[in-house]
């Protein structure tokens, strides 16, 4: 029996962040505090451009926040680390590596080969037979699946996903949602996932956090206490969906 590393808890305490855009400082994140327990599957929802990806960068440790604190496993985050694996919004595969070498990237960095894990990850995202392809030979959806495989090869304690299934066609998306859920249940890591799809958030997550338009503030934080395997026609799920869309200011559109 393989033992998986213990899931990681994350605390965000009074986070403020921003960027200079066109010479003036623009706040992007305003006073965000969140407590994420080990093993939770948290979905982040919010309008495009509100600061979700930025928040993920702070959690990953790619940038320090302007104010506030990010704690991972009770320790202040001072930089990125392989126990917090990120899957970025763009696939960002290295064009000079084959699909297989891209998936094996973290193994190369760690200096430990693990052909079995790499093969398993490639098979899981359905890219068997494309191991030796160059990234420019993949479709957008395939590139995103390769990026997902690259993230899943690791044994992360926290998986940070930025719209991981955004570019997939709707059928592949269903398969990948199931796979993601299965993997999370099996390995038990913590997941923070940004998605623009309310239904996806409700199907997968144990908790859905909603953000305002920029600068991002938490406007709702809902626990989804529904057992898996969830059904998208479940009336409780539909009610939650309606509630969240209303919060996001789409009271007429649902």
């Amino acid at each position: 029996m393989v033992t998986h590393p213990a899931p990681m808890d994350i605390q965000l305490r009074g986070i403020h962040h921003g960027y200079p855009i066109g010479g003036t400082f623009t706040p992007v994140i305003e006073d965000v505090s969140l407590d994420i327990a080990p093993g939770e599957f948290v979905a982040l929802l919010g309008p495009s451009g509100c600061g979700k990806s930025t928040l993920l960068r702070l959690v990953a440790g790619l940038e320090p926040p302007h104010a506030g604190q990010v704690l991972a496993g009770g320790v202040p985050v001072s930089g990125p680390g392989p126990d917090r694996i990120v899957m970025f919004q763009d696939p960002t595969l290295y064009p000079w590596r084959t699909v297989r070498a891209n998936v094996a990237l973290s193994r190369d960095i760690a200096g430990r080969r693990d052909d079995a894990a790499v093969d398993a990850a490639i098979a899981m995202v359905g890219l068997k037979g494309f191991e030796r392809a160059w990234p420019h030979q993949l479709s957008g959806g395939m590139a995103q699946r390769a990026a997902l495989a690259r993230a899943l090869v690791n044994e992360p304690r926290l998986l940070i996903l930025d719209e991981p299934l955004g570019k997939l066609d709707s059928l592949t998306r269903l398969t990948m949602q199931t796979e993601l859920l299965r993997l999370w249940q099996k390995r038990g890591f913590t997941v923070i996932m940004v998605t623009h799809d309310v239904e996806e958030a409700l199907l997968l997550a144990t908790r859905v956090v909603t953000f305002s338009t920029r600068p991002a503030r938490v406007i709702s934080d809902v626990s989804i206490d529904l057992p898996y395997h969830r059904h998208r026609d479940d009336p409780r799920l539909l009610a939650l969906r309606r509630e969240i869309l209303v919060r996001l200011g789409h009271s007429e559109d649902w």
């Binding site: 440790g61 790619l62 392989p82 917090r84 694996i85 990120v86 970025f88 960002t92 973290s106 960095i109």
Partner: peptide, 12 residues
């Protein structure tokens, strides 16, 4: 692309 560095850095 700085994103290339980000990918590698998050993997340690």
């Amino acid at each position: 692309d700085p994103a290339y560095y980000d990918v590698a850095r998050t993997m340690g």
